[in-house]
Nucleic acid binder design. Structure first.
Length: 691
RNA sequence: AGGGGAAUAGUGUAACGGUAGCACAACUGACUCUGACUCAGUUAGCCUAGGUUCAAAUCCUAGUUCCCCUGCCA
């Protein structure tokens, strides 16, 4: 269903109800009139953004766009041990790139909310923490990390801390010493005084501050104590006046904490004018900047702070994909891939390099919807989203991945002894007639795809074979007559004749206007004299298993043996002029993208063209005759069962042939075991595995 | 054991007491100067068991299954 006509998802329903109820009165605080809501994306700069983050970014940005709100990018940089400037830079770059699909960004366009750093709020957070201590809601605890672990208790057994009832004045003094660096790392922490018996372990007096002596990318060495996520996050949202703080499902257990901290800060504060999520009042901030700074340490002095609403949704997961930062880091550091931007990586940087468009990623995110159901999306849907986008946008070109010589023996020769060069019209994009045509040279000495020729064709092979007439795309009909072979018997050259009456690739028409001669296959080609060499990198999915690690518990066990194949291709010279990142379709092969390794486009002469295959075209061929675009192995029996391929997805049925026969009989199915349809396969699997 | 969530075709996702739809995948076929695109059709679903109701995917009760939670990570 098109996004425009789809009913609102559950987050949108919440927002709409809030707007209808006038719950968030941002109008007073925001000079940019009419803003009734605000969202944010809060990455920790400890890794690269990936396609999972894209769903969150698209959700938050789309919400701001739909409801006339704003969208913030905020770095949740409260742990200097893991965070780096490199990640900040990459995230900013990737954010701008992705949100360009919405025509704006966090810092441009009508929905720009701004760029923020949690570390800019450390002063304010520190002041609030002191306030909590004064109210008896927090205390300095001198238990070591190990001791806290031992004393955390269990279900039905409360946690303990001997420091829980320390007088506020004493905690205040120690907390100040912590801040000034008078205590060693890990020596003590500030803990919230909540409930040591809570069945929700997050509430068993969680740590608010720890001592960490690490260089911070933003604050340098200004601090040696750092706030924990739960303490910091609600205040970050509060200061930025985020209305709907959208996060993933695993934070549901943290929501009580999120709310507790904001209430704790507000306890005893003066009620203000703006309404909060709880229907109470918030400080009148007219005149206050929407962008708080570190100088706001004691602001607001005595008024309640904004209480954002946390909402959880199910994150995006993909089959054949590993998305945890920890595991992705391992792929990078152990050399499984060439870097964070390796085109096989599900990072936004990797996808951009591979040829993915922001629009395709946005389309996928909108297509899968927003719910609280823990779900895994078929990777083919991502690929389809790209195909869909590029089919409309990408210009067409020709190139051969595995060249085989094709000689047109009756092609005319000009008086100087050289073959005639015929400049033919090539349609730039059939989906966009307005894109027009361009000229391609044809001189009778060509290169074709090795897979497009078979000496003897079966009934389902439409391409070149001895005696089988085929169309060369936009050129002529040709009929192979014979081949040359090398000593090993391999075909080295195909010789054919052409029909001058078919120039442009049109079939001759009879008097009734109908084609008198039809041809089943159309094949791409390139003039051997005019083509240029290109290194083409063909990617397969990194993992062979639908759910990496499911079988053995170790995702590394499911790494595909080979996910990169490099071929020496010959492509149209036009492509050497393509800018880095330019995408186009190589007809009948797939969509390709100019890799940065090619060097800049302005230096055409010195350029070594490198192309990435972003995605193949769908292969609709029945039977074994297809698979030109795909390099996937054909289905066959494995050691532990039989593997069936449906489209691009392989499924294995771990069943003996005999047992499979029995199952088919018991299900009353007449299907041949060698050729199950997906529906039949699913039925069998359900019968055997119960799911 | 305790707490927090979620269950609708193979995969996702609608329905908000009133005919279980849609997308993707699969399968047929049509069209086609890309075995692409496009178009038409087919297969296939409410976790289970009770209850309320004229009527239940929806409300109630009891189960079942799956996910998250005992970092000084986020």
């Amino acid at each position: 269903m098109p996004a425009a006509t789809r009913p609102p998802h559950f987050v949108e329903q919440i927002v709409e109800a809030d707007i209808a109820a006038g719950r968030w009165d941002l109008g007073r605080a925001e000079s940019a009139g009419g803003t009734c809501m605000r969202t944010r994306f809060p990455p920790e700069p400890n890794g690269y953004l990936h396609v999972g983050h894209a769903k969150s970014i698209c959700l938050n940005y789309a919400l701001a766009m739909k409801y006339g709100g704003r969208f913030n990018l905020r770095f949740d940089d409260t742990n200097p041990a893991k965070e780096e400037q490199e990640y900040v830079d990459s995230i900013v770059r990737d954010m701008r790139w992705l949100t360009s699909a919405f025509g704006g960004s966090f810092d441009s366009g009508p929905h720009a909310g701004g760029l923020y750093f949690a570390s800019d709020y450390f002063g304010f957070m520190y002041a609030c923490a002191c306030d909590l201590i004064g109210k008896g809601l927090a205390y300095v605890c001198e238990l070591s990390a190990a001791e806290v672990g031992e004393r955390r208790g269990s279900v039905g057994v409360p946690a303990t801390s001997p420091f829980r009832d320390r007088p506020p004045a004493e905690s205040l003094k120690l907390f100040d010493e912590m801040r000034r660096g008078e205590h060693a790392d890990g020596r003590m922490t500030l803990r919230a005084r909540i409930d040591l018996e809570s069945p929700n372990f997050n509430l068993r007096d969680p740590v608010m501050y720890r001592i960490v002596r690490e260089h911070h990318h933003n604050t340098g060495g200004a601090w040696c104590i750092y706030p924990m996520y739960d303490w910091a996050h609600g205040l970050e949202d509060s200061l930025e006046r985020v209305t709907h703080s959208v996060c993933t499902l695993e934070f549901e257990n943290h929501r009580p904490l999120y709310d507790w901290f904001v209430r704790a800060v507000n306890q005893g504060r003066r009620a203000g004018v703006l309404r909060t999520s709880e229907g109470g009042a918030l400080a009148d901030r007219s005149g206050q900047s929407a962008a708080p700074t570190s100088t706001g340490a004691d602001w607001p002095p005595s008024a309640e702070v904004w209480h954002s609403q946390q909402i959880e949704f199910a994150k995006l997961q993909l089959t054949y994909t590993v998305l945890s930062k920890r595991n992705m880091l391992k792929m990078v550091s152990s050399g499984i891939v060439r870097g964070w931007d390796d085109p096989r990586m599900p990072t936004l940087s990797g996808m951009r390099r591979r040829g993915y468009t922001p629009g395709a990623i946005r389309a996928l995110c909108e297509d899968v919807g927003v719910t609280k159901v823990d779900s895994v999306i078929d990777l083919v849907r991502l690929e389809n989203a790209l195909r869909d986008d590029l089919n409309r946008a990408a210009p067409r070109a020709m190139g051969v991945l595995r060249p085989l010589e094709l000689l047109v023996e009756n092609w005319p020769v000009s008086p100087d002894g050289k073959p005639v060069v015929d400049m033919l019209d090539f349609v730039v994009n059939p989906e966009r007639p307005g894109a027009g045509t361009r000229k391609v040279p044809f001189d009778g000495r060509l290169l074709i795809e090795r897979d497009d020729f078979m000496e003897t064709a079966g009934a389902d092979f439409f391409r070149l074979a001895i005696g089988q007439e085929v169309r060369l795309r936009w050129a002529y009909f040709v009929t192979p007559t014979r081949v040359d072979k090398d000593a090993s018997g391999a075909v080295t050259r195909v010789i054919c004749t052409y029909d001058p009456a078919t120039r442009g690739g049109d079939a001759p028409h009879g008097p009734d206007g109908k084609p008198v001669r039809k041809v089943r296959g159309t094949v791409h080609w390139i003039s051997a004299a005019h083509g240029v060499p290109a290194e083409v990198r063909l990617y397969e999915r990194l993992f062979a298993a639908e759910f990496p690690g499911q079988a053995t518990g170790n995702w590394m066990d499911d790494l595909a043996p080979s996910s990169l194949e490099v071929v020496s291709a010959v492509v149209e010279p036009l492509l050497t002029q393509g800018e880095v990142g330019a995408t186009f379709q190589l007809e009948r092969l797939g969509y390709f993208c100019v890799d940065p390794d090619s060097g800049p486009a302005r230096d055409v002469a010195a350029r070594k063209l490198v192309l990435n295959r972003a995605v193949t075209l769908k292969d609709g061929a029945k039977g074994a005759a297809g698979a030109l675009a795909s390099t996937k192995p054909a289905s066959g029996a494995g050691p532990s069962g039989k593997t069936y391929s449906f489209g691009q997805t392989a499924h294995t049925l771990k069943l003996s042939k005999e047992r499979l026969g029995e199952v088919l009989v018991s299900l009353g199915m007449a299907a041949a075991p060698e050729k199950l349809t997906q529906a039949e396969f699913d039925k069998v699997r359900k019968h055997v595995t119960g799911r």
